[in-house]
Amino acid sequence: MTQKHFVIIGNGAAGNRAADVLREGDSHAKITIISDEFFHFYYRHRLKDFIVGNIDETSLTVRSSEYYHDKHIRLRLGQQVIKIDLNSQLLYLKHMELVRYTHLLLCTGGKPRMPEIHYRYREHFTSMITLDDAKHMKQQLPAVKRMIVVGGDLISVQITKRLLNAGIEVVFLVDRDAFWPLTFSDVIEKDFNRALRRAGAKIISDDAIVNIEKLGHMAYQVRTRSGENLECNLVGGFFGLVPQVDFLVGSGLDIDRGILVDEHLKTHFDNVYAAGDCAQVYNPQLSNYWVSIGWGNAVKLGEIAAHNMLGSPDTAIRPPINVLDYEGIEVKTEWWQEVS
């Protein structure tokens, strides 16, 4: 019998929790975590404090390499899976290596959402999802006097507050389409604007970007529908997250908003599971799928997936609808509406 090889794609909360549970349940199996990021498992919600220098990089790290050595978990960081052959149970890595798995767990998380309307000038947006993004932004910040933030997701608000504290002039362009995963209501807009204005941001609403032009190094001009030309050093685009499933297209897995899995987090392939932000989980009661994002959710799903992979059935329960656990912060969602 060949040795079991649990391969987890994704080094976030779901993947790491799953690895722990798998190791507890099977001390002999080979366990591998693959992530295209170069960094150790880190607290994503602390990135905003990292970019403005409130905390240093070491405080971001959840676990260092010793932990994985001790647990005999092979970490493959900075490695990207570009193709999955589900029939042969083979992963094709970008650096031209084949990895054979017996059980696969997909915890690839999310990537920045880019509304179609902004596609034309998308390379001019700075976003901040990963530590890599954060480091890049942190490097640029000292030279930033003025930044235009476009968006409306929760992180955009959090970042704006910190940028203002750091003495950067922020112009916040509220983009109703950018709100995700919840849509904007007039009530929220009011609260939202008040909060931003109190913090010192200049707010432009009821307008929209029609073009962004790069004038030079760290110099952009943003033109709005109303004809305003705004100059700035950076344009932040914060439009929320979408599951990172590009590399799975054509693999044979069912993909919708995320990877479709049953209540045991299993795809329609026997040994392939998904958990965390990238999973779209079936709820038999609702006869429908749900997507949930956030740290706590990811940990829970990672654990459930691992149990199932070890052969002890476990079922995912939908979290309470009125609380959104977003990047480690619980936000009451009374005044938010779920996306349909």
Partner: peptide
């Protein structure tokens, strides 16, 4: 490392697969 070898490396035979956290790899 060579990012485009003539064919895929077998598992654990690609040096890039062993990049330790903290190290940096350029293919």
């Amino acid at each position: 490392y060579d990012s485009k070898p003539p064919q895929y490396h077998q598992e654990d035979q690609a040096v890039a697969g062993f990049i330790e956290p903290g190290m940096i790899g350029y293919g």
